[in-house]
Simulated scan of single mutants.
Amino acid sequence: MLGSSVNLNCSMQLNGVKLDRVNLYWLVPDVNNKVKEYLVPRPKKVSARSSNSRLIYPEFTNDLSLTIDNVQLPYTDTYICETSLLIGTRNARATGDGTYLLVYEEFSTFMNHTDLFCKVKLQTYQNVDLLWESQDQDYISTPPIVDPASDNSYWISRVLTYDPHRCRQNTTITCRLQYKGQSLVESSIEVACTGNLLASHSPPQPILLYISLLGNSLLILIIIIIVSYWLKKKRDRRVQVFAPYAPCFVPLKRTYNA
């Protein structure tokens, strides 16, 4: 991280071989694999990077590791440990695979409404990625956004839209800074979840819904039957009460005498 001290490891296995001379070099190659800068031995034209570089063990040992203090974004580079050896009368040369140092600044995560932001400042964005993940769910986020900064560095950010209604409990989501698939550092953020509240008021299961509909239909049918029976009884009662007192007219026969 910006402003910290880093150790670049380099060691030599002698296996009992006696060395008559050892010349150690720590160098930074350019894109054409030529030497861009020497850190050890310290060059005549000292840069900020070379002045901040020192061997952990100044006296010769098998450990040839280098410390760089107060690292800055431009220190992002590949560092190579190289030795020139004299064994008797034979010269030999040994070169390490190189250590890539990626210096980052202000790596952070924060939330704005339902959007989660992961942001970092780097000297380069090549082979660099930001990845959102959590233990209980995989998240699909937007592609990384690269914005140039005024100091020839870059802001890299990645946005994740989080739906709090799809979860059942508060969860921690982590953003990882990766270089060539290797995680370098991570930052986590805990987000609230409203899924529990929604789950407690979730709609009934289909079988319960069918039972409820069936019960309501039966209740309506029973009410209709009761009402129909009551109306029928009422009509029958009206006939039984009023029929005996209904007026009856019987025509009279008149007899006429001849």
Rank of each mutant, 00 (worst) to 15 (best):
L219H: 03
N216K: 11
F107H: 01
N91F: 05
T95A: 06
Y179D: 12
K180Q: 15
I145F: 05
T83V: 15
D69T: 12
Q182V: 15
P247I: 04
L66C: 12
L214W: 06
K18D: 12
P58Y: 01
W155V: 09
F107I: 00
G96E: 07
L213I: 04
R166I: 08
W26M: 11
T83M: 09
Y139F: 12
A92W: 11
P164I: 00
L177Y: 04
V35W: 09
I224F: 04
L66S: 06
N62P: 02
S84L: 13
R237F: 05
F110A: 11
L55H: 04
P244Q: 09
E106Y: 14
F242T: 11
V103Y: 10
E186V: 07
T172S: 10
S157P: 00
P203Y: 06
S200E: 12
R93P: 05
C167I: 02
T61V: 03
Q72H: 03
L177M: 04
L64G: 00
E37R: 04
V146Y: 02
V40C: 14
N70R: 09
Y79F: 11
C167R: 09
G96D: 06
I207D: 13
V31E: 11
L131E: 01
L218K: 07
K121N: 10
P74N: 03
V191N: 10
K180V: 13
T124Y: 00
L102Q: 15
Y38I: 10
S5M: 15
P251W: 06
H165Q: 14
Y256C: 14
L102F: 09
L197D: 09
A92Y: 09
A192L: 15
T161Q: 11
G195N: 12
N152Q: 14
G3M: 03
W132M: 01
A246G: 13
N7A: 13
S188D: 12
K233M: 05
C167G: 07
S53R: 05
H165C: 15
D147W: 08
D136R: 04
R49E: 07
E37C: 02
N112T: 00
T61G: 02
L86M: 03
P247C: 09
A94N: 14
D20P: 01
N152R: 13
V227N: 00
W132K: 03
L221H: 01
L130G: 02
Q123R: 07
F249N: 05
P29K: 10
